[in-house]
Structure formats: C-alpha cells, structure tokens
Design a protein around this nucleic acid. Sequence first.
DNA 1: TAAAAACTGTGACCGAGATCATAATTTCAT
DNA 2: ATGAAATTATGATCTCGGTCACAGTTTTTA
Lengths: 237, 237
Amino acid sequence: MKTNSCDCGTCRHKLCAQRVPIFFGLNEEELSHVADLIQRRQYLKGEIIQLEGSDADCLTIINQGKVKAFRYTQEGKEQILYLFSEGDFFGESNLFGGRKAAYHAEALERTHICMIARNDFQELVRRYPEISVKIIGALCTRLERLETTVQNMGTRSVEARISSVLLEFVEKYGVKNSKGILIALPFSREGMASYIGIARETISRKLTLLQDAGIIEMIGNKKILLLNEEALRRELD
Amino acid sequence: MKTNSCDCGTCRHKLCAQRVPIFFGLNEEELSHVADLIQRRQYLKGEIIQLEGSDADCLTIINQGKVKAFRYTQEGKEQILYLFSEGDFFGESNLFGGRKAAYHAEALERTHICMIARNDFQELVRRYPEISVKIIGALCTRLERLETTVQNMGTRSVEARISSVLLEFVEKYGVKNSKGILIALPFSREGMASYIGIARETISRKLTLLQDAGIIEMIGNKKILLLNEEALRRELD
DNA sequence: TAAAAACTGTGACCGAGATCATAATTTCAT
DNA sequence: ATGAAATTATGATCTCGGTCACAGTTTTTA
C-alpha cells in the first residue's frame, strides 16, 4: 500500500501539525513547538476512539483516515452525526465547555490521529490567538452542515436526502473518470441510512431506482459511479 | 409595560455590552471601548432582521427579545433552525468564514439588538483574545443543540420530539407556580411544528393527548402549564 | 479458493404522520 | 365590547417510509 507520510522519527510530528488547517499560518518554529505537544496514535477499522460521556480532555485531530461520530438512543438506534476526515478535529467541547464527550467516535478505516492535551492546547491558543480564529471558522462550517441536515430532515423527502448525501460524498471523495464520477463510499448502506436518519431497506430501494433511471451505477457495495450529476441535483427538489 | 433598561444616552451602550456573555470578563474600561463600537437597533414583532443570502457584515447580538432563525425550501416550507434569546448572537459566519447569511432572522417580539461591524469586531478579537474563547464556547453549545436535534429527527417519534421541545421551553422560559410550571410559548403551534419538523395538525393532536393524560394544560394558544414534568420526561422514550 | 460471515435487495404489510376540509376558538383591532 | 381575522382542533383519508421475513450478493477469513 502506498503511503505518503514520512516515517523518520523527527519529522512526522511536524508533518502532522502542518497538515492541519487549524495550524495553518504558523511558521516553522511555531509548528515545531506545536509538534512537541502532539501525541500520535493509530486506530484500525472499527476501533473506538472516543466514548460518549467520557471526559477525554484533549483535542483529537485526524491526520489520516475517516471517523464516524454517532450516538445511540435508549432503544439502540444509531444516529451518525458527523463523518470526519483528514484535518477535522473533535473534542473541542471538552476543552472549551468543560463538557463530556457528546458522541462516540469510531474509525471507519485505519486512522491516524494527533492528540493535544487540554493544558497544552490552552497554552497554544493563548500564545497563538489566530488558532482560535481558525477553530471558529471550522465550527462555523460544522454548524452550516448541521443546519442543512436539520432542514433536510425536517422538510425534505427521502429521495432528496439521499441525493444530498450522494452529492456530499461526490464533493468529498468523488474522482472523475471517463464514465462519470466514482465515489468510494465511506459507509455501508446501514451507515448511510443512519447518517440521514432512514431505514436501510429504504435506501436500498431508492438507490435501485436511481440506478434504474440511469443516474447512478452501483459497483459492489462500496462504490457508486455517478453517471448524471445534473439529474441527481434535480432530485434535490 | 415595565422596562429594566436604562434610558440615558451615555450608559445604555455599556449596559448592552455588559449583558452579553461573549464580553464577560472584560473590565470597565474595555467594556466602554466595546460600547463605543456598538450600534443599537430595535425591531418589532414580525420584522426581518436578516435575510438569508445577504452579506450583512456585522455581528448581531440580541440584547432583549427573541428571534427565530429559519430557512425556506423551494416549495415554501419553513424550517426553524434556532430560537435566539437575550445574549445570543448571529452573523458570526459572515465575519469568520466570509460567507453569506445562512438563514433569515425575524423578531418574535419587540427585540433590541447590538451590532458590531466586521472590522471593529476583528479588531476587538485581536485586542481581547478571550472573546474568541467565549465565542468558541457559545458555538459549542449551539452545536450540541443541533446534534441533539439531528438525533431526535433521525431516530425519535413525534411524541418524543414534542416532549423534548416542551422541556427545552420549560428550561428557558418556565416559571414555577403552585400548580406546576408555566411556559410562555415563544412560538405559535405552526412555529413549534416548524421548529421540530412536523405538521401543525400533528402537534395539535399530540398536545391534546398530553392534556387528556393530565400532563399539561393548554392556556389559550400562548401558554402551557406543565403539570407533570416526570411524566413528560418519560415521553422522551 | 471455498466456506462462513456480513451485508444488501425485495416483496408484503402496516402504521405514523401528512394532507385536506371544515368547524371551533382565540386574538386582535376598532 | 364586538366583529373580523388569525389561529387552532379535529375528523377522514391517503401515502410514504418503516418493519419483518427471507433470499441473493459481496466480502472476509482461514
């Protein structure tokens, strides 16, 4: 498997810090200061990174891989809240609000993370105030996604919600090829269903319809080829 | 009508800044600096404070009153995203992300707001970095509410969602009296329905059921008396 | 590469909640 | 206080999407 991360002991931490948007704008020296505070860890697919209700007091930044953030209802029904990828972070509400973790976090594939302890991070923010501006920006982006999700769940048909999530994946993970845009799905059908709050069977049926309409082509269970983006956008309403 | 705000020209601005959580922690002098940058405005019930898509480049802080933030779908269906009260703010994504307003904002009653222009605010944040920490805290609170809303919409029955919103109002606007907790509703039935993403008729029916069960008592259209909080909590699931 | 395990598709059925229509109440304005 | 306007309640009906059951595929593993 191809890897694009450096494995020498000294630079890997710096690398991590460099890649993370909230540290953009720091210079070499500052980055290396950040790097000294970072602890790295690796998780395999399916491993739990954070438990809902725990008070892990550190900021967790995803350096490579994908993570789902989710909660269970009392009856055991799962709702996925976020799909985090490279550069995303979580645990900020532990640090800033002093709250317990609001959701479980599980690696969807092999995932490398960087952790910074509460005290170290607070010190960093004090020293480099532009970091907090970056964080505010990231939180605003997150709020916007949730706002749209709430609107979709409250007002839109299941078809529209499915189109919406497919287009989200296209944007994040889509790769153009001669026939269309190939999406490597981050979730199983079950996961997609839980992400938009519907039943697995329903998403199966609707994807079959989209395929019959020539809008998508399902390739195994883990890839979808988008053949007609225009038509998919029309499904949004 | 009783008013608890000072009307002399000099101190009213300072008053406004003092009340707002994101300026807590500033001293007298700093507050008065902030006050100099603030522009006040008043809106009557039903007036639009912000239009979705506009690029009002200022931070808007609610000093008194209530504001609903909402969007329309193409078919004209409304989804309420936030209910803002005293001390809440919006417009931050305009300032920090350079984005257009993500929703309409409308006064639900007579509302006083404070506005700070983008440049002034950026200067403030630079000068008093603890403001940005306060903002991060507020955004985390907002995220948490939206996360719970998404979970409710995705996994919970309409009964549970109604109980949830009633309990939210109890916490925000409830006043204990001898019979129970009196809630002055910020929304009409229509508004409550739009807030949790269901039909107005459905909420009517379910509230009637709750009343028949002796859990609440509806007083006109604008007040609800909660008789049995325990029972209402059980409805959550 | 074959068997096991996990995941997905599909039909049948059902029910919660939407929609429509209309009556009853509440609120507002004069 | 009273009539008009707005809001809410409620019955009838319908439909979308959930649930259950099971067959068919895909993926994993040994």
